[in-house]
């Protein structure tokens, strides 16, 4: 009987030892989730000072990244800038969904390739991209990689067709850092930035000659029509208007011809002009010396732009018009839609 009691008591004592909680564990804590042998990396800060961006202008984004296991433990740092139509604070989910394209997203990827070597690449590069990565500061020395934090900076020239913002829309800027154990951290620039409208026009070198035309010729009269003969290219990151104008006067060796923007040409040496982007005289617009709209439906273009190849002019001359060889200017204009 004693043996039975002893055996049972021994087992119960052992059970009691198992059942007592681990005191040291109860007085210490652990971070839920990711805390383990490798500490997670951290985005300490990211900032873009400018709150209004202009395409084809460069800006610097600064971001301090840290990792208690040293910067050498960081695998990648991915900086993204993207068009966010509804603004607000960007989420990590939005960040992850961003892909590089000339209109709506730019990505700079820093990759630690081993030792003290790394690569820094900007995308998009396809589609005639005009986004450019300028000077940048990334870890390059043993000292940098042995440290626990590093102030990264990237100088970026904004592409020509980066979407113009309006209303609540913003260009958001954020960075995500990933370490060797795939732990990540994400943070964003607090304010984002607006993007200004950008418009570009390319007009190949050319002149317009009507040759010989009769005094008093009206729009649509003999030889009054002249095709421009070259293609005009428009690029814009938002809505744009095509406009045209003439210089207020054309100067000859002896005489000066005056533009009549009313189109009546009642006075001596007056002329008037109409223009259309599809060679249709009934749709043609009477030009003035400040610029009239030929088409107000232009929308954001690709980097290649929109080309218009069929511009035509029609001229009208006063009945009294002195013969001369005239010099003047016809101008095509790109303007923001309003």
């Amino acid at each position: 009987m004693r043996k039975i009691v002893f055996t049972t008591a021994l087992i119960l004592v052992l059970l009691a030892m198992f059942a007592v909680p681990n005191v040291s564990a109860s007085t210490e804590g652990s971070v839920s989730g990711s805390f383990g042998i490798s500490a997670p990396p951290s985005v300490d800060s990211i900032s873009l000072t400018a709150t209004s961006l202009t395409p084809q202008t460069s800006y610097t984004i600064n971001s301090t990244l840290s990792d208690p296991d040293k910067i050498s433990n960081v695998n990648t740092a991915v900086l993204k800038g993207w068009y966010d139509s509804d603004g607000g604070a960007p989420t990590e989910g939005e960040f992850d969904a961003v892909t590089a394209n000339t209109q709506n997203g730019v990505i700079v990827t820093w990759t630690h390739t081993g030792g003290i070597t790394s690569t820094t690449v900007l995308t998009p590069t396809a589609g005639g991209s005009t986004w450019v990565l300028g000077a940048y500061s990334v870890p390059t020395t043993l000292g940098h990689f042995d440290g626990t934090s590093f102030p990264f900076s990237f100088n970026i020239t904004v592409g020509k067709v980066a979407t113009e913002t309006s209303g609540a829309g913003l260009w958001q800027w954020a960075i995500k850092v990933t370490d060797a154990t795939a732990q990540t951290d994400f943070d964003k620039d607090a304010e984002g930035a607006s993007m200004n409208w950008y418009g570009e026009i390319t007009v190949p070198s050319t002149t317009v000659s009507w040759g010989g035309i009769s005094r008093g010729v009206d729009f649509g009269g003999t030889n009054s029509q002249k095709a421009l003969g070259v293609t005009v290219n428009y690029k814009a990151n938002g809505a744009y208007d095509e406009k045209a104008k003439s210089s207020a006067s054309w100067t000859g060796a002896t005489y000066t011809a005056t533009l009549d923007s009313a189109g009546t040409c009642d006075d001596n040496n007056e002329f008037a002009l109409k223009a259309d982007d599809a060679a249709v005289i009934t749709a043609a617009v009477l030009l003035d010396a400040t610029g009239v709209t030929l088409d107000d439906t232009g929308a954001q273009t690709a980097e290649a732009g929109d080309s218009v190849a069929n511009y035509n002019y029609w001229i009208k001359l006063a009945a009294s018009f002195d013969s001369d060889n005239f010099s003047g200017t016809l101008t095509f204009i790109v303007a923001n839609g309003i």
Partner: peptide
Amino acid sequence: ILCSVFLSVPVQANSNIAIS
């Protein structure tokens, strides 16, 4: 009786300008 509004010209450069 005709008004010529053309004179041969030197080659001009392309116009390739932009605004923002």
